[in-house]
């Protein structure tokens, strides 16, 4: 038991230390650059300046407001994407003609980078809420759809035969066999989709918006407030990680059998 436990703790500490090595180096370079070179503060602020700006933005409530606006856009777009993505992904996975109808066009659309959509969407929807939601949907919908489809399609024939043997209806076969089999893969899509939504909203706000964390960044840039830009970037990163972790925890709870399987695999 003892020999089993010690390396685990050691492993945890090692993990944390290793993860901190590169941030530490970056901070060192940053310190060096601000102390021993003549880069203007408008381009590269000092670490204390950034810290101070961070605290100020936090205190004034501006940061909270910016983040909430961006997150609420993500939620709208993401929920729409999740519903549509799972629905159409299932449809494509279950019915060959639907697949033949939709997959070619979807494959083409997916080649267009999200940024390339923004000009057209701004032309059509302006720079209000709708355009943000549309851009998020364009990113997240396809990620969720493609993963749902692949999860449904990879259902082993043997399990479908079991459903056939017990004369399950088409709908029951879907809910009891195809869907549970696809759930892990759907969750992968939902997770990618959430990350994609967050990136999409920040990008869209950078280019065309009057509020949100991305807008804050672009307006700070035009005022040469590099400290605000850096604070916003750090916040975007942290919020992204938190959303990803959060959704990971929720999804693990939704697929208890996967936990058991993973544990078995680790033991082997």
């Amino acid at each position: 038991m003892k020999t089993d436990r010690t390396p685990k703790i050691g492993f945890g500490i090692r993990k944390i230390i290793l993860a901190l090595v590169i941030p530490f180096i970056i901070v060192l370079i940053w310190l060096y650059a601000t102390m021993y070179t003549s880069i203007p503060h408008g381009i590269l602020p000092t670490i204390p300046e950034v810290g101070q700006t961070f605290v100020e933005m936090l205190k004034s409530g501006q940061m909270k407001e910016d983040i909430l606006i961006s997150i609420s856009r993500v939620l709208k777009g993401y929920l729409i994407s999740a519903v549509l993505g799972i629905f159409f992904g299932s449809l494509i996975g279950m019915y060959q003609p639907v697949k033949e109808l939709l997959v070619p066009i979807i494959t083409v659309i997916r080649q267009i980078p999200m940024i390339a959509w923004i000009p057209l969407i701004v032309l059509w929807c302006g720079i209000g809420e709708t355009s943000k939601v549309v851009i998020i949907v364009l990113v997240a919908f396809f990620q969720i759809l493609v993963n749902t489809q692949s999860g449904i399609e990879s259902t082993p024939k043997g399990y479908i035969e079991v459903a056939k043997l017990y004369k399950l209806s088409r709908w029951k076969t879907f809910t009891k066999v195809y869907l549970p089999h696809a759930v892990p893969q759907i969750l992968v899509g939902l997770r990618l989709g959430l990350g994609g939504s967050w990136m999409a909203v920040v990008a869209a706000e950078l280019i065309a918006a009057t509020s949100g964390i991305g807008y804050r960044m672009s307006s700070a840039r035009s005022n040469m407030q590099s400290d605000v830009v850096i604070v916003c970037m750090i916040v975007v990163g942290i919020v992204g990680v938190l959303m990803d972790k959060g959704i990971g925890v929720i999804f693990a709870a939704l697929t208890p059998w996967r936990k058991v399987e993973n544990e078995n695999r680790k033991e082997e």
């Binding site: 043997g158 079991v162 056939k164 004369k167 549970p180």
Partner: peptide, 28 residues
């Protein structure tokens, strides 16, 4: 096609991984 009174036990057991054993046994 399959009928309710004809059961089959497959060569590979084909238990559904996402169902607990009791739900697998009660599947039909």
């Amino acid at each position: 096609g399959p009928g309710p009174k004809c059961g089959m036990v497959f060569q590979d057991h084909r238990l559904l991984p996402w169902l607990k054993i009791k739900d697998n046994v009660g599947f039909g």
